[in-house]
Structure formats: structure tokens, C-alpha cells
Design a protein around this nucleic acid. Sequence first.
DNA 1: TTTAAAAACGATAATCATTATCGTTTTTGT
DNA 2: ACAAAAACGATAATGATTATCGTTTTTAAA
Lengths: 126, 126
Amino acid sequence: MKHSHKRDAICEVLREKKDHPTADMIYERVRERYPEISLATVYRNLAQLCAEGELIKIGAGGKERYDIDTSLHTHFFCEACGDVYDVFSPLHLSGLANAESEIGCKINFAHITFRGRCKNCSAKEA
Amino acid sequence: MKHSHKRDAICEVLREKKDHPTADMIYERVRERYPEISLATVYRNLAQLCAEGELIKIGAGGKERYDIDTSLHTHFFCEACGDVYDVFSPLHLSGLANAESEIGCKINFAHITFRGRCKNCSAKEA
DNA sequence: TTTAAAAACGATAATCATTATCGTTTTTGT
DNA sequence: ACAAAAACGATAATGATTATCGTTTTTAAA
């Protein structure tokens, strides 16, 4: 993988605002620095960075979202506004051994996501 | 919602084989009974049944899959063959209170999915 | 049991996110 | 500077899903 300014800009954008943007949100943000960038370049680089393990995709039904923090953490999806928040508090899941014996195989990974209304959306409703 | 034979057939197909089929898998199966059915009818009815709470969607990145068992349970996605299995063993997640205070709002729902290799795929590799 | 409005249907066009193609431009090691 | 490899922009293609629209079923009341 050669060095590329556009790819750098994509990573910077992801580091600057940790709101787990979609590909087109990233495209708009990078465009402020590189107005000539193509959406294809954004997708190409996102796929590449994911393959290298430098990014993770956090799709939840609709469009894919991207997170440059690849450390183990959980995401909270606001059902009202669609925003995604990080949760770093440690969680523990028990009952895995029984689940494994039920399906007769090893569980490699348990994926957890949360849903609810974020602080902003709860405040608006009140 | 009026009664419809095609919709009945879609539900039957989902009850007969609990492999969480995709829309086009359902289309193929219903076609054996109603060769004239349209894929649009399958999608229309699946959306309708989901809206009524009679089905759940269990998308995991790629195509959506559908499950007629709406009781609380977990899914295991085989990373090798893509098949989806049910897990009914009880699970318990702790650490939610800290997670809620971290993000400052109420978590309505914690969604858990498992990944690994199913029994068949593990056997093939050995 | 006709009848008429509402809902469902099939065919197919449209949408939308994402991926592939291809000719040109950058990067990088020599 | 040079040339191969990688990246790029523009745009076409793909694939899943949704929308449209004219026709057919369903259903409940006349």
C-alpha cells in the first residue's frame, strides 16, 4: 500500500469527529480539503483500510458507518436521530457455555449493540 | 390488513424451515406453491408482517434475513457458510448501569449476536 | 349474491448504496 | 529522471429493495 494524501485525509476526518460517519458523510468532509475527490476514492480507501484492520464497519441495517477506533468497545444507536455513540464501560456476558453446547460449536465472537434514545433526543421530547 | 393466500404461504415457508431465509430464498420456496408469485409481493408482505410485529429482520451486513420466531432469542452466524442458527439458552449481560451513566441515557435494548463456525463447517475443515 | 371499496397482486421501473472498469495521474524505489 | 505499482476521478454496473400502476382478490354490506 503506497502512501496517499486522500487516504490520510479520510483517516483524519475519522479521528477529528468520532460520530461514526457514513461513506457519504466522509466524502463531504474530505471534500472541504480536497474538492476534487471522488466518492469512489472514499469507498476504495475505506474498503482498503478495513481490510488492513485500521477501521471497522459498524453497519446497523441501513448504510454502513465507519469507526477508526478498533479497540474493543460497544455502540449505542439512537432510535430517534440515528446517531451512534461509543460505550467503553466494561460489559460481561454470561451463559456462553450453554449457548455453545446448544448449537454444538465454538462461539468466536459475541457482538453487542445498544439501542435507545440519546440524551439530546430524550431532552427534545420532554 | 385483508387475508391473502400468498401472505399465508410466506408465513408457512418461514415456519417450515427455520433457517432464517433471505427474501429471494423465500421467493423461491413460495414459487413451488404459487409459481406466478412476484418477488415484489414477497417484499411487500415481508415488510407488512414486520410492521405488524409478526416477523423480525435479522440483517447482518449483507442481505436481510427473516425470522418468524419473535420471542427473545439470539442468533449465531456461521462465518464460513453464512447459515444462521437460533440460540435459546438464557444469556445475561452485566455492566449496563455503567454503560447508561457513561452515555447519559436509558438503554432500551441490548442486541447480541454470535459469530463462529457451525458444526458442519468445523467438521469439513478437520 | 351482486356490488363496490379497499387491499393485494404482478410486472416492471426506479432508487440507493456500493463496486467495478478504465484511462490518467501520483507515488516510490532505483 | 524513469518506470512499475498503486491510487485516482469519472462513470458505468450491480444488486437488494422500494415505488408505481393497471388489474385482480378479498370482504362486508346491500
